[in-house]
Nucleic acid binder design. Structure first.
Lengths: 341, 341
DNA sequence: AAAAATTTGGCCAGCGCTGTCATATACAGC
DNA sequence: GCTGTATATGACAGCGCTGGCCAAATTTTT
């Protein structure tokens, strides 16, 4: 319960300093020394005292995840991805759900970083879309990585992981077009989220490419919720002019639309095809299961965390890491658009 | 960026030690000293350095939450409750999702505790229902609190927070009985979870109290899933002898049952009343919304964390805290059982 | 074989706080 | 008032590790 670096040093027959060097992956350590020390650590089941390391090095071996997202599945998956990365690099993850609306949000985040001496932060929408937060963090020299919706890297988006909602929406729309649908409605999500706009743009681009145009009355704004899907689908399918397919901005909306269609005795997918977005568990719990776009959330989160480690590390190479990687959600065809079992 | 306890001490005109006392809520501090120090801390926006505190006190100001639960909402709510408690007491929460099936789970948990020098652990099912884990933790003198399904405190269940599924299920069943239903079916959840058994027992007890008996063919085992609800309700409602009400073991099952009923053109709640359990967001997203039992998950979690702080604290009173508090989920009547708007 | 480069050890300060114990101050009672 | 007890505060060492620095040991190069 109290094996110290000293014990390891003795067993390995080296100095404390060398053990410390091994732990911190410092360059000038010979291979066999490294192995000796590693073996000793394993044999003793040595667990370095995180607190002591943090204190002495005045940097912490933990990163923070700040979020405010009502979608529990999303959050859980992001956490999982970051935790995977953390475990690999012997970091800790500090989760910090909070209210994005709070006027003192910047202050709050800075305090969090300071108190826990975080090595960096991962931000998801809406925090990743707050310019003032990014500025404040940059000014205080806090490392951070943002996960945002976008398709085109730009110098402004430093240290971002982009999720290409545009292309994914394009693909889904294309799938519907290929099935022969031309009368496609779009059910949007919360307008504050840029993801909704990106998806709409992808939808419209796909239509345009086929020489079609989105009917204004079939592009319906709303919220990212089941109820919103129910209501809008009902209105849409009660009108004179009905679409033959619906592209919903996320799975919840799609499930709502599906629900409405059921009530109206509209058979899916024969009379109406419905596609969602996200590949949430929700999309598998409907009947028929929803065609959707698979967002590899945990992979994205893991990647973001890894990126953060690179930025925050005392890497000797001067060039800061200003990478921007783009993830494209994959099309996932299920029975809600095509009856091929 | 680097206000230390020293700065606070100077500003408040006291010694470092006294500031430390204030931070740790130690008893022997006069009121006015306390106020002076508190004011100084606020003025300087002082953030104690967690690492230093951990090191000096050789105990960490963080607790761990070990879980393996597919229900994201549940996990998120538990996290939120624990975080609330943690923030109040200036603790950190380390989340540790893992695979409950792993044969080395005990070892893994012990390592986690050691590495992060956790002050204690909160366990939810299935971890809270593993006797060997509890034993190992007790032996290693790791403080822990278990959240489990149960109604009767017993010496074996030391440091447990009990969720009285039995009574809650009793109440729901009673509600159905009071509406005049006598033909009530029960759709169970995964049998490995003790919660399912507790709920079934509550259901049967309520019937017996009215001189009724559960029909064996109406007590149907299954899984805690939407699909399982769909299938079982369909079977139930296709039989010769149909129940007039269904008590589903959780909201997902209930939503599935609701879905089936819709497909079969059975009107809810007139021809069939349906009740769920959990008050998940799910239960509000169906139409009609589900009558259910509200499990105050975040409150329970918060309470569990507070209990843990008490156990792990250097409380001078010898008597260990072996409390057992029982939370009873509340009946929440919605339109799926009673059309009264 | 000498010079140069690499690897390792020794030493010490100190990260920012808490535990222990000693001291100072308050509040009794007579 | 004064001693006695309870309470409030302070001084100091040290938690386990890292960083900096230089010297010593070892290996590699010329």
């Amino acid at each position: 319960m109290k094996i110290t670096i000293n014990d390891v040093a003795k067993l390995a027959g080296v100095s404390i300093k060398t053990v410390s060097r091994v732990m911190n992956n410092e360059p000038s350590v010979r291979k066999d020394t490294f192995d000796k020390v590693t073996a000793a650590m394993k044999q003793l089941q040595y667990q370095p005292n995180t607190a002591a390391r943090n204190l002495a090095s005045s940097r912490s071996y933990s990163i923070g995840y700040v979020y405010d997202n009502p979608n529990a599945y999303y959050v859980i998956e992001m956490q999982r991805g970051m935790l995977d990365a953390c475990r690999k690099h012997h970091y800790e993850l500090i989760i910090h759900p909070t209210n994005a609306q709070s006027p003192e949000i910047v202050q709050e985040v800075l305090e969090l970083v300071e108190r826990s001496r975080l090595a960096g932060l991962v931000l998801t929408p809406p925090f990743s879309e707050m310019p003032h937060l990014a500025e404040a963090l940059t000014e205080k020299e806090v490392a951070f990585v943002r996960i945002i919706s976008g398709s085109t890297p730009s110098p402004k988006l430093s240290n971002c992981v982009l999720v290409d909602d545009f292309t994914a929406a394009f693909k889904i729309t294309n799938h519907l077009l290929e099935l022969g649908h031309t009368d496609i409605a779009f059910l949007g999500g919360d307008e504050e989220h840029s993801s909704s706009g990106e998806r709409q743009a992808g939808f419209e681009a796909a239509l345009i490419k086929r020489g079609l145009k989105a009917k204004p009355e079939w592009v319906v704004a709303g919220r990212y919720s089941f109820e919103s899907g129910v209501a809008r689908a009902k209105a849409l399918m009660s009108a004179e002019n009905k679409p033959s397919a619906i592209f919903a901005c996320n799975d919840e909306i799609a499930a709502g639309a599906l629900f409405s269609a059921r009530l109206m005795n509209i058979s899916i997918p024969d009379q109406l095809a419905i596609a969602g977005f996200e590949n949430s568990p929700f999309s598998r719990q409907t009947w028929p299961p929803l065609t959707t776009a698979h967002q590899p959330n945990s992979t994205i989160a893991q990647y973001a965390a890894e990126l953060l480690f690179k930025c925050s590390k005392k890497t000797h190479n001067k060039a800061d890491v200003k990478q921007q990687t783009v993830f494209i959600p994959e099309l996932l065809v299920r029975e809600s658009t095509s009856s091929v079992t």
